[in-house]
Design a protein around this nucleic acid. Structure first.
Length: 483
RNA sequence: GGUCCCAUCGUCUAGUGGCCUAGGACAUCACCCUCUCAAGGUGGAGGCACGGGUUCGAAUCCCGUUGGGACUGCCA
């Protein structure tokens, strides 16, 4: 028996929605779970306003970043317009469709108090011919029920009389989603339709179309299994909105989320691996994933939790890999891909790759996203130093003891052996001389040398920065007080 | 309004009639570690929406209530 054939069928927009990413991932899981599974990408671009070339490229790029490799495609729905038209022709011939010239206003006006949902079927028996203003509607059966066999939710029962005679083709001739999608799914021999829950109410219409097509085409295709994924919601428990919520996958990439962490987190939204551990290898997810295990209720997209997981993934990288992954943020100029609007505060001349490699281990365990890396190492590469004025004021400017400590440090550092261990010892002693614990004694030096009160371990940083530069900064900080 | 979906800690979830005094993770609080900040360690607080059934026994099954949500386009 052949494996499952699944498709991810996004409509192009300006970015890749995280909800789409999750749908794509679950489809991909189903395909990869079976050695013979096939994952198809079909871009549904039939709406004229949604067919910009770069948008489709964005989808492919985002999926490639996520590691969701495609077996067939990307296919364009717009390449299938002939098949869509053929569906219309045969369905019309079979008596399943009719022309309708009602305007939106007329439909609404006639609806009135009527109990019938949506369109009331006014044109069904008018025997209209094709015209420039005629849309095409489906003759939804008035009797009976349509059952959606949903792998996640079980059987969902829709009474046919609650479904209106929906439009399958616009007056312009363009075939609409419901039919275009079904036609393509039939042609692609899709076995599992896995998509967001917002499509659940489309399912009975599509099943009706599928069955009708089976009859008129003379070549029946087995109905696919359906699986409607729980929605991704915001804090207000509403479907993630492109307006109000940060939903662009690309922006998470820009911020420095690792794709493996992103995927792992996404998988946890509506599904969970066996056992107590949530951070699991991709292969484990693929192996354990079952559509029937997907949860029924909406899931909140919790960036905080994802950030924590990303931190764990970053810390688990070996140092060399961390340096490599950080490249787009620390030396974007020689990277193929670079985050948008995130230039580091230094230029190619100031940056020193070897030096960065030495400090990398110090920052690796301190960041949750790669986008935080430049901020932590900026003092190594920028000149002049950028000061956190509040920190400068409390640790140096307004603290005579801090100034005394800096002065003493300048003296003693001049003859010090320049490595972290002995610098540590020096500062310990300088502090003692002034009656300061190391905690207090390191603060002014840190601020003078790095410009802030927080950062990588100080003594290692001094060692790497070098004696000359460190001493110069200590003096400059002192000078800064008087000016 | 109509149709449909959903309901375990603040959040994501484990749980498929007895193993549940409900487990884990994030967030949160306390303490430990500590040159700052993190990370890490230990511990704490925190949940089965409500009401009826069924059953010897229900977070788990049924019904109802309440509450949330999706859809209701000549968009997908």
């Amino acid at each position: 028996m052949a494996g499952p054939r699944v498709r991810f069928a996004p409509s192009p927009t300006g970015y890749f929605h995280v909800g789409s990413a999750r749908s794509a991932l679950f489809n991909w899981f189903v395909a990869r779970h079976d050695p013979e599974g096939v994952f198809i990408l079909r871009i549904e671009d039939t709406d004229e306003s949604r067919n910009r070339e770069e948008w489709a490229e964005g989808i492919v790029a985002a999926m490639s970043w996520l590691g969701l490799d495609i077996d067939e495609g990307p296919n364009r729905q717009s390449d299938n317009v002939e098949q869509h038209a053929a569906s219309i022709t045969s369905l019309m011939a079979g008596g399943y469709l009719y022309y309708c010239d009602c305007t939106t206003e007329e439909v609404a006006a006639r609806k009135g108090e009527n109990k019938t949902p949506g369109y009331d079927g006014y044109c069904r028996s008018r025997g209209l011919e094709r015209g420039s203003k005629t849309a095409i509607r489906f003759k939804t059966p008035r009797e009976g029920h349509t059952i959606v066999h949903d792998l996640i939710r079980g059987d969902v029962d829709f009474a046919n009389d609650t479904i209106d005679d929906f439009v399958v083709a616009k007056s312009s001739g363009v075939v609409l989603y419901a039919l275009a999608n079904v036609t393509d799914d039939r042609d692609d021999r899709i076995t599992h339709v896995i998509r967001g829950e917002e499509h659940l109410s489309n399912a009975p219409k599509q099943i009706l179309l599928w069955d009708a097509l089976n009859i008129v085409s003379g070549s029946p295709v087995a109905l696919p299994d359906y699986a409607h994924l729980p929605l991704l919601v915001n804090e207000q428990r509403k479907k993630l909105s492109k307006r109000k919520d940060p939903v662009a996958t690309e922006s998470y990439r820009d911020q420095g989320y690792l794709s493996v962490a992103f995927v792992n987190y996404l998988a946890l939204l509506g599904w969970s691996p066996r056992g107590e551990e949530e951070i699991v290898p991709l292969a484990t997810m693929i192996e354990q994933f079952r559509l029937t295990d997907v949860s029924h209720s909406p899931a909140f997209f919790d960036v905080k939790k994802m950030t924590h997981m990303n931190g764990e993934y970053i810390r688990a990288l070996d140092s060399e890999r961390f340096v490599k992954e950080s490249a787009p943020w620390v030396r974007p100029w020689d990277c193929q891909w670079r985050p948008s609007d995130r230039e580091p505060p230094w230029n190619a001349e100031q940056f020193d790759e070897a030096l960065f490699a030495r400090v990398a281990p110090l920052v690796q365990e301190r960041v949750a996203t790669l986008g935080e890396v430049p901020g932590l190492v900026a003092f190594f590469f920028t000149e002049p130093l950028l000061f956190d004025e509040a920190a400068f004021a409390t640790t140096i400017a307004q603290d005579p003891l801090g100034q005394a400590l800096l002065a003493l440090s300048v003296e003693r550092f001049a003859d010090a052996t320049w490595n972290a261990a002995s610098l540590h010892q020096e500062v310990l002693e300088i502090g003692e001389a002034l009656g300061l614990k190391l905690r207090k004694a390191q603060a002014p030096i840190r601020c003078a040398v790095t410009g802030t009160s927080v950062g990588p371990p100080l003594f290692e940083s001094l060692e790497i920065l070098g004696k000359e530069k460190s001493l110069r900064r200590l003096r400059e900080a002192l000078n800064r007080v008087s000016s």
